[in-house]
């Protein structure tokens, strides 16, 4: 590592370990403290309930002035998440504030799972299905959760 890790990242990492958020875990890599392995449980009552979704999270150099980069690794059927796992979420883009943290962002992502927004879609096909036949869409999401998002 060329530059020492900013105090902010050290503190955040410590707090993630000492006071973990229920249903969410984020563990930094040993060789790169800016790279996190993340697991998020599907929120209760949603079609992702029972699933554990893994994500990757990276803190760029200008974090926290810039938002962290986050991507789903587990396949998920969701109108705001595309095939590559990219997430359409305002706080990850123009509504980012440097006062936000890894934990708050992960909570937002968990909330997004609980409340899909087909009006602002990233994955057009899924969003279309969501609007036209919600029951069918939810069924597919359940199936995918069972198929791809089980704890190993």
């Amino acid at each position: 590592m060329t530059t020492p890790l900013p105090k902010r990242i050290i503190k955040e990492t410590e707090r993630l370990q000492s006071e973990p958020v229920p249903g969410i875990s984020a563990v930094p890599h040993d060789d790169n403290a800016r790279y996190f392995d993340v697991n998020v449980e599907g929120p209760g009552g949603s079609c992702y309930e029972g699933g554990v979704f893994s994500l990757e999270l990276f803190l760029p150099d200008d974090y926290p002035m810039c938002p962290p980069r986050i991507r789903f690794l587990t396949r998920i059927y969701h109108p705001n998440i595309d095939r590559l796992g990219r997430i359409c979420l305002d706080v990850l883009k123009n509504n980012w504030s440097p006062a936000l943290q890894i934990r708050t962002i992960l909570l937002s992502i968990q909330a997004l799972l609980g409340a899909p927004n087909p009006e602002d879609p990233l994955n057009e096909a899924v969003a279309k299905q969501w609007k036209e036949n919600q029951a069918e869409a939810i069924k597919t999401a359940r199936e995918w959760t069972e198929k791809f998002a089980q704890k190993k």
């Binding site: 900013p6 105090k7 902010r8 050290i10 955040e12 926290p64 006062a99």
Partner: peptide
């Protein structure tokens, strides 16, 4: 600009 005792900056954690 003010100096506040016991203040922690939410951005840099100083």
């Amino acid at each position: 600009v003010v100096v506040k005792n016991g203040f922690t900056c939410d951005i840099c954690c100083e």
